[in-house]
């Protein structure tokens, strides 16, 4: 008998008899009832508490904000996609600036060392945010592959304020994740960190040292 059969048989022929599966009540992880302003405020407070930086801007002028962030962080080379509107708008806005744009939609084998060693920041869109934990959720695509939010020392993420939801559970349910998962789905809540050296927090141990979230608003922009 194969190990697979042996294991399954042992589990099925359980000596104390079959178990009854309880029904779960998920009320405790949903139904927060926060309004839009509260969601933004919570998101900012939570991600800020783990060293994530939040910059508010309007939907119309977000690329100006991006340019300011890049200048403030001294970013010379920015990796980004091409097709996603975030990437496309960033590309046209930055076309004749001083920042070199690095195509992220290439097989990693072609540019691994370049990505690891000479890209200053990665720009990505996000699918949404989570107010309760201050998290971003991303489903990397061929246009914006997995590693541009991980390998460069700075990750700049663009988030629409109205895509922030209350809880992780709400996101999984409302967007029917179970109907079809991508190769890789990610929650990102702050820059990479460790406390492995005597409980002292240090950032950027493997991933980005800094995470900047550009929050785009269609209505008023909070101060």
């Amino acid at each position: 008998m194969s190990s697979r059969e042996t294991i399954l048989k042992r589990l099925r022929e359980r000596s104390d008899g079959p178990l009854t599966a309880p029904v779960s009540d998920f009320a405790v992880v949903t139904g927060r009832g926060w309004d839009a302003a509260e969601r933004v405020a919570r998101f900012e407070r939570l991600i800020g508490s783990v060293h994530g930086e939040v910059v508010h801007t309007s939907r119309a002028s977000w690329t100006d904000t991006l340019a300011e962030v890049l200048a403030a962080k001294g970013v010379m080379r920015l990796a980004l996609g091409r097709q996603h509107p975030v990437a496309a708008e960033a590309r046209s806005a930055l076309a004749d600036g001083g920042v070199e744009l690095v195509d992220a939609d290439r097989d990693i084998e072609e540019w691994q060392r370049e990505q690891f060693e000479s890209v200053d920041a990665g720009l990505t869109s996000t699918r949404g945010g989570i107010a309760e934990t201050g998290s971003l959720w991303l489903w990397p695509t061929p246009d914006e592959p997995r590693l541009i939010s991980l390998v460069p020392p700075i990750h700049i993420a663009v988030l629409d304020a109205d895509s922030i939801e209350d809880t992780f559970f709400d996101v999984v349910e409302c967007h029917a994740w179970a109907q079809g998962m991508p190769t890789n789905a990610l929650l990102i809540s702050g820059p990479s960190k460790t406390a492995d050296i005597e409980q002292t927090l240090a950032y950027g141990v493997h991933g980005p040292k800094a995470l900047v979230v550009i929050v785009r608003h269609t209505g008023g922009v909070p101060a």
């Binding site: 939570l46 508490s49 783990v50 992220a104 939609d105 290439r106 097989d107 990693i108 309760e132 934990t133 201050g134 998290s135 695509t141 061929p142 592959p145 997995r146 590693l147 998962m181 991508p182 190769t183 890789n184 789905a185 990610l186 929650l187 990102i188 809540s189 702050g190 820059p191 990479s192 960190k193 991933g207």
Partner: peptide, 21 residues
Amino acid sequence: QHVTTYFNMISGPRKPDEHDG
């Protein structure tokens, strides 16, 4: 912690049109 920095959900190897993984 309220949440960790990363929650990484993997549902398969790199697809033909994907560029990393």
